[in-house]
């Protein structure tokens, strides 16, 4: 595993596109994570009120709210990570280096795992950044620090991790199918932002909360961390990770992994 990670690191560390995307990603991530308080006070100064409540007293960064709030916000940035994965996988085909890697003695399984190790590392680093950011922001903004509040809702970090590895494997699947980074990026965005939402809207129109909707892959990963913000206007939210969503997301992860394996190991590598 360690060797595979080293190989991936050698491939990526001197790649300008990767470095730029990664830096941009972390700047955006930190900006999103840290700026909410500023936005809320700006809203207060502009005279905005949420049902009579001043925005600035919303306990956005307080334990235990902070975990769901931050993971939900961070999940919007997963497309950036998906672009990195797509470029990393399609490059292997356009440079034909996957072929040379295998000729040099890598097994198709190792190749799959080297990309999995990369995906795991991205997701893990992301989770750690969220953990550190949540801890710091929570300590600064909470009125009191109580260990049980600190750990409440920390499972959202794990849910976020599963969300990322599943989504990134979906991106890898599209990359393996299309082999061209441009096509793969467009296909992923088109599917995630247009095709699936349209299908979901249609099913919703046919019958409310159609059972099929939860099975769609993008829905499945998004369902892991539900929108938390309505709680600040006294609406009920799902403030836990549903077991059903976990199972469906894990199912998609397994399915993507299986097809990724088939596409690498059972197809001619031209």
């Amino acid at each position: 595993m360690w060797k595979l990670l080293q190989i991936e690191w050698l491939k990526l560390k001197n790649y300008k596109t990767f470095n730029r995307l990664a830096i941009l990603y972390f700047i955006l991530l930190l900006l999103i994570l840290s700026s909410v308080k500023l936005i809320l006070s700006w809203m207060e100064n502009s005279g905005v009120e949420f049902q009579g409540i001043s925005p600035n007293i919303i306990p956005f960064y307080d334990f235990p709210d902070v975990w769901q709030n931050l993971t939900y916000l961070a999940s919007y940035l997963k497309f950036f990570l998906a672009f990195i994965v797509i470029i990393s996988v399609t490059n292997e085909y356009s440079f034909r280096t996957i072929r040379q890697n295998i000729i040099d003695g890598m097994s198709p399984q190792s190749f799959l795992w080297s990309k999995q190790v990369m995906i795991f590392t991205f997701s893990l680093v992301n989770m750690l950044v969220l953990f550190v950011a949540g801890t710091i922001m929570g300590l600064i903004h909470s009125y009191t620090f109580e260990p049980h509040l600190f750990f409440t809702g920390i499972e959202f970090l794990l849910a976020h991790f599963l969300e990322l590895i599943t989504f990134l494997n979906l991106a890898m699947l599209i990359s393996l199918l299309l082999k061209k980074s441009g096509f793969a990026i467009i296909a992923l965005c088109f599917y995630a932002l247009f095709v699936e939402p349209s299908l979901v809207a249609y099913l919703n129109y046919k019958s409310d909360d159609h059972w099929l909707i939860t099975l769609f892959p993008i829905n499945a990963v998004n369902n892991l961390v539900k929108v938390p913000f309505q709680r600040y206007v006294f609406m009920e939210i799902q403030n836990y990770v549903a077991i059903g969503s976990l199972i469906i997301a894990l199912g998609w992860y397994g399915l993507c992994l299986f097809f990724n394996y088939l596409l690498i190991a059972k197809r001619d590598i031209a």
Binding site: I7, L10, K11, N14, Y15, K16, N91, F95, R96, T97, R99, Q100, N101, D104
Partner: peptide, 15 residues
């Protein structure tokens, strides 16, 4: 076939 953005040495390190 090599990674075009890497040097010869960096490519050989991967091998």
């Amino acid at each position: 076939t090599f990674y075009p953005y890497l040097s010869g040495v960096q490519n050989l390190k991967i091998v």
